[in-house]
Each structure stands twice: as structure tokens, then as C-alpha cells.
Write a protein that binds this DNA or RNA. Sequence first.
DNA 1: CTGGTAAATGCAAGTCATCTGCATTCCAGA
DNA 2: TCTGGAATGCAGATGACTTGCATTTACCAG
Lengths: 138, 138
Amino acid sequence: MPDTIIERLRAGGKKLTKARKALLEILVQSALPMTAAELHVRLRNAKKPMDLVTVYRNLAMLHQLGLVTAVGLHDGQIRYEVRHGRAHHHHIQCRGCGKIVDLMLCPMKKLTSLIEAQTKFAVESHTLEFFGWCPQCR
Amino acid sequence: MPDTIIERLRAGGKKLTKARKALLEILVQSALPMTAAELHVRLRNAKKPMDLVTVYRNLAMLHQLGLVTAVGLHDGQIRYEVRHGRAHHHHIQCRGCGKIVDLMLCPMKKLTSLIEAQTKFAVESHTLEFFGWCPQCR
DNA sequence: CTGGTAAATGCAAGTCATCTGCATTCCAGA
DNA sequence: TCTGGAATGCAGATGACTTGCATTTACCAG
């Protein structure tokens, strides 16, 4: 697990418990964003069971510290992925099987200042997600 | 209420009940996307009370028929807006007070074909929502 | 390396948005 | 007007996520 993550935990006054370390290891290795429920199962399988509530609390804390990104696709669940070492990006999800694929792009930079001028909002973040049919489902 | 909406309801084998008509009238007049709960209150105030469950069922049906768009901001609720007579657009929501403002733009057209080529998905739709601080809250 | 303390955890129970089952009521076409 | 499928309301369930509280644990000071 990257040292940066540990440092930023410490800087936020957080402890690196065994449980938390196991959760972070799974999340760091995951290629795609995961839900709390998925992490709960993976931790159980890895013989490091963690209460589902604790998974939620850890994800909320990691999000607060900016160590993970929340991904809101439209199935009523929130997914999380570690931010460390990954460029800002978006996703596409299949309407049929729910498969998620990373998109390594983001054309929003110029648009943001245009929107700030138009609305007088201070833009903090944005979501950009695509939905469609994957090769197997279409 | 636009005739197109009624026609498309009929074409989908749906009936235009008094209750449904009241719901559509409120939704057509609303400048911003509304949640099921908001519609439930507005219908009650308009002396046309409709059970919250029926609101959900109607919104799901209208979405199925493509008459309304679902807007997923990140507060765990789904908002809906009528599609008729409105160009495809996106939103920005204030992190502080939750205010929502329409953005009359969408730069995604070119990107879509690029993504289709890259992923072999057939892109059906996308969401693009911005979050930040409105003039009053920042 | 040991003890104190704030942070972290697990369990139980609560919220909140949304959905399902079922009996009743209501449109829309014959 | 009659009638069958659609729509509705009510009750209760679901599923994601939160909160309260007592117990355990990591980490720092001594």
C-alpha cells in the first residue's frame, strides 16, 4: 500500500488498524470502484471480516480525507475507488449486465470556468458517467 | 399540457387519469427537476392528493416511456423533469444549500462516438452534473 | 514497555427512499 | 352503459445507509 495513503491518514488524526489496512489493500488492488457491500464480502473472503457498518464508516472517512472518490452510477449504490496514483477519470456502465469500464478522459476543464462565469457558482467537482450496452449485451 | 405527452401515453397503452393529469401538470410547469416526495406535497397542496407510491409508479412509467428524464444528484434521491420541449441539458447543485440550476449545454456529442470506438459499448445516455458553492453559500 | 486516551469497532436498532402485494376503483373502447 | 385491463391506495417489505452505545485497539508519553 502506498505510503502517501498512510501519511495522509496520520495527518488526519486517523489510526491504521489491521482492519482498515485490509480494507485499503483490497481497495488499492481493485481495478474498478467498489460498493460497501462488495468490500464487506471481499474482506470476509480474505479472512479479515469487518462489520458492514465499519466498512461504511471507513469509506466515509476516506472520502472526507479525499483519499477515495465516490462514484454514483444509477443503481442506488455508491461505489468508491482510491485516488492515489490514478488520473481523474469517468466510467461507463452497461444497462444490461451492470459491467463497469473505466474511461481515461475528462474534457471538463474548459467547461468549468465557463459554467462558473455563467452561474457564479464555485465549481468543486463534477460527475460524468455514461450508460449503454456492452458488446455482450447488445 | 402538451398534446404530445398525451399521445405518447396512449401509444404506450396508458390511461390519462385525473390523478396522473394533475401530476403531469405540476411536472410540466416546474422549472427544475422534482423528487417523488416533492411531487407528493405539491399534489396535496393542489387539492389533488396522490399516494406517494402512486407518484413513484407514475414516475417510473413516464421514465420508461421516455417522457421524463431522471436526474441523479448525490443526495440519494432521484429527481425527474419533463422532456417535452426542452433541450438536453445538465445541472449544477450547491454543496451548501442544495440549490439546483439548469445548465443549457452539453459538449458530449463528439465524445460519445470516441467512447463507442474505444469500449465497443453502444452508448445510450450519459449524466453530467456539477457540484459547487452558489453565490450565497460560498 | 506499559498505561492512558482518543479513535475504531461490532452489535442492535433506526432512517429514509423506494418497491411489492393485494383488494378496490376507474378509464376507454365495444 | 358494460366490462376488462389499467390505476390507485393502503399496508407492509426491502435495501442502502446511519446512529447510539458499550467494548476493544492503536499510538504516544512517560
